[in-house]
Amino acid sequence: MSEMIQFTLNGAERSVAAEPDLMLIDVIRDVFNLTGTKHGCDNATCGTCTVVVNGKAVKSCNFPIEKAANAEVMTIEYLAKGTVLHPIQKAIAESGAVQCGFCTPGIVMELYGLLENKADASEAEITNVLSKHLCRCTGYEPIRNGALMAQKLMQARAAAK
């Protein structure tokens, strides 16, 4: 019997049997059918598979499931509450950062990992985390704009609290 790995996925307790080479992305997409997390490359280069584990953005395609034991895993599906978008989603949707949208979930999760921890991240820090992601469509300007817009929305949200 292979070992069972317990973790929280989008707020719910989950478990899955550990198997060699089983990556977090396979569990997310194939076991739990959360297809918002994308698979864009073979070698952890593109960033489309990014999810948040214990508050930090990670590439789920090279994240062995064992490492997720007892962790809190969050995917793109968990960000919006009903029809209310997370400010990052709203900003990315409105800034022109979405063309084909294949890179989008990964980028949103990356920004979540950064901005939820560090609302006042500098533009250079934002560019740095975004440089882990490939986008073939936008030329990046609208993504950077979206990230900056999101940051403002989140700061306003914090001030309102």
């Binding site: 297809t35 793109i76 599906e77 960000l79 989603q89 949707a93 949208g101 979930p105």
Partner: peptide, 20 residues
């Protein structure tokens, strides 16, 4: 704003590999 933007930022847009 593009009509498909919301589906794409929420991860709900269906691409080929998402079809089962």
């Amino acid at each position: 704003i593009r009509p498909d933007a919301i589906g794409k930022v929420t991860g709900k847009a269906i691409f080929l590999d998402d079809i089962r």
